[in-house]
Simulated assay, not measured.
Amino acid sequence: MKHFEIPLYLESERLVLRMFRDSDWRSMHAHYANPECTRFTLGRVLSEGESWRQTATLAGHWLLHGYGPYALEEKTSGALIGAAGLWYPADFPEREIKWALHPDWWGRGYASEAARAVQRMARAAYPEALPPISFIHRDNLASIRVALSVGAVLENEIDFRGGRFQIYRHPSPRAG
């Protein structure tokens, strides 16, 4: 089994970023069952069984790569509000910082807060590596706003899975 290359737990001002638990899939289903949440990523809503498998994929990514997305827990309420972290599926161009929030939590700065926490962690864990990207469908304006708000810069646009995706490069360790 691969060892973990990054911390299993992070905190930001309002969030706990932690490993996924079996019970988290139900909360993640609120994301995966919403067409606005899956429009630019999966292209369709998921059933409960598919949401469980997708959540298991997020958790299993840690075992395959030594890093992965965190479950995002809002500190005050303890609610699981989504996921954010390092992600590198086999067909992606590079390791990325991903985020996915339940719609009830949109527009409050949680995605940017989580992305900044992941940026800091990635800089510490991989100081000599090329900074990660965020790989975003060009029509996903909300995610593009998050990428720009955390200092990522548009680097390229490519065809991917039947759509046009933009590559936003996160700041290097020397940038901050």
Rank of each mutant, 00 (worst) to 15 (best):
M1T: 11
I6D: 08
Y9L: 13
S12E: 01
R14W: 02
R14L: 09
L15P: 11
V16A: 09
S23D: 15
D24V: 09
R26F: 02
H31Q: 02
Y32G: 01
P35G: 02
E36T: 11
T38C: 13
T38S: 11
R39S: 01
R39D: 08
F40Y: 15
L42Y: 08
L42D: 12
L42R: 14
L46I: 05
S47V: 07
E48V: 11
E50H: 10
W52H: 14
L58E: 04
L58S: 10
A59W: 07
L63C: 07
Y67I: 03
Y67G: 01
G68Q: 07
L72R: 07
L72K: 10
K75A: 04
G78E: 08
L80K: 10
L80C: 11
I81V: 12
A83D: 13
Y88N: 14
P89Q: 08
D91W: 09
F92D: 12
P93A: 03
R95Q: 14
E96P: 08
K98D: 11
K98I: 15
L101N: 05
W105Y: 15
W106A: 05
W106Y: 02
G107P: 06
A111P: 02
A111L: 05
S112E: 06
A114I: 08
A115Q: 00
A122W: 05
R123H: 15
R123T: 12
Y126A: 11
P127D: 09
P127Q: 08
A129D: 15
A129H: 10
A129M: 04
L130A: 15
P132V: 00
I133L: 12
S134P: 04
H137F: 01
N140Q: 01
R145M: 10
R145T: 09
V146M: 11
A147C: 08
G151N: 03
A152T: 05
A152W: 00
V153W: 00
N156M: 05
E157I: 13
I158R: 14
I158Y: 11
F160I: 04
F160V: 04
G163W: 01
F165W: 14
I167M: 13
R169W: 07
R169C: 04
H170W: 10
S172P: 09
